[in-house]
Design a protein around this nucleic acid. Structure first.
Lengths: 253, 253
DNA sequence: TGCCCGCATTAACCCATGTTATTGACCGCG
DNA sequence: CGCGGTCAATAACATGGGTTAATGCGGGCA
């Protein structure tokens, strides 16, 4: 769980959900993971609104969040970036960023230039295709978040966010059994769920009281994932994990 | 406003926000607009969850919505499709649809096959680039909706939705001065804003009472757009309309 | 090692929005 | 031309989640 030893495999592992990569694809992928590494502390900004797009970011370890502000300071996290996630491969089409990306925990990323990206994908159409799949999944997640924010109750919403994060971490190989690191604060969870920190605290306690989650030492334990999914009205369809007849493993490898 | 005479220009007009298209690009674009036309009544489904992606849809007239259900029937509209909008140019990467698309008013679309699309873009990299820009703007809108649903109050939220729709319609050339067709029901507005129809009714009346909107005969009139924008905490940055030094016209051409 | 600040918890109170129900207007279809 | 169904308006009441504030823990930095 986040020990860093197999860091360069998170992206490959995830993309192989979608397609079988050749050794050349895997090497290209590995090269991307080794682009300039950069570390951040929790709450540091990675990208700021108004910036000209400069890098594609690959998350190697820790959690980041994409967020937007209202003029009076209210803030919404509109997506999580977890290990193996890639930030906006098409970003260079835009002139400037319309949002922030910030570290939600200690964070390690690879900064990928436009040139690095083109080098990696130019002769690897399968890799490029897999990266497009990943982008489409990211926008499917974005849509699901609209459903989450617009229709689910507080309890459903928090349960749903936890299920989604857990499954995504599992796909990246960052879970052990039904446990995973849970490095983010309730404040961040509140900003992502459109609730107040006070109510997130209540809600997590309600989930714990029902035996649906256990947290200690920044580690999350989910005794019965099916039960939590039911509480969050969660189904994994929108993550499109079963593309070539593969299905979600009930355990990680 | 929706008279259909210049229907084939909505897409061209919008894309020229981003780049100057050559005559060849425009012709290709026009060809796309002329792909198999199809009409729907309000509330008919265009695409159903679980479908294999078959067409790319170009909206020619009327409004459509992308929506998702919870198992108990709660429903969220996660995006609007307005004239000139294109539905998911990359859709063929996915195996099946994870959501519905339905008509929110009488609707006219062009059904574009994978082959049609490839023909149109193969030798027109500028057109393809412009379509990618449009896709990125669509996902930027999706993020803004998360902010809308998560942080804005009911009044701000409805005002914001109205501003966004109006500006998008203006870009497509579907406004006259500060008026536009407003063919959708308060029920649809409620499903898009995560509110109840009852509260949307109250909220629209509050906006009208403040002189921010006027509606009659399915026509919307915005006496003072700046004031409405302020009420909705709306800024157009996320629509990325100013790509090559262009800016939002204060009136349509 | 100790201090300080950020985070989680808890409590009491409140209000924005949801709920349920009724009525009337309009419009498309027969 | 009239009927039925959908949509909007309104009212009375209910509640989920927000607000404010106080407390204590714990971990990172000096």
């Amino acid at each position: 769980m986040g020990d860093g030893i197999t860091v360069s495999n998170v992206l490959i592992r995830k993309l192989e959900r979608y397609t079988r990569l050749s050794q050349v694809d895997r090497d290209a992928c590995h090269a991307l993971s080794c682009s300039r590494p950069r570390h951040y502390r929790a709450k540091e900004d990675v990208v700021r609104e108004g910036d000209r797009p400069e890098f594609i970011y690959l998350i190697l370890d820790g959690w980041a969040g994409r967020y937007k502000y209202l003029p009076d300071g209210r803030r919404q996290i509109v997506s999580f970036f977890l290990p193996g996630d890639i930030c906006d491969i098409n970003i260079f089409v835009l002139r400037e960023m319309d949002h922030f990306v910030g570290a939600l925990s200690r964070l390690k990323v690879a900064q990928i230039t436009r040139g690095d990206f083109e080098t990696a994908t130019l002769d690897n159409p399968r890799l490029l295709q897999a990266l497009y799949w990943d982008t489409l999944v990211a926008t499917a997640i974005q849509r699901e978040w609209a459903l989450n924010l617009g229709q689910r109750s507080a309890l459903e919403r928090v349960a749903h966010l936890i299920c989604e994060a857990f499954i995504r971490l599992r796909v990246a190989g960052r879970t052990v059994g039904n446990r995973c690191d849970w490095p983010i604060t309730q404040i961040a969870l509140a900003e992502a769920s459109g609730l107040t920190p006070v109510h997130v605290s209540r809600t997590l306690q309600a989930l714990a009281a029902q035996g649906l989650i256990e947290m200690e030492n920044r580690t999350l334990h989910i005794p019965d994932l099916d039960a939590l999914m039911q509480a969050g009205l969660f189904t994994a369809h929108y993550l499109h994990l079963d593309h070539e007849g593969r299905h979600i493993d009930s355990n990680e490898g």
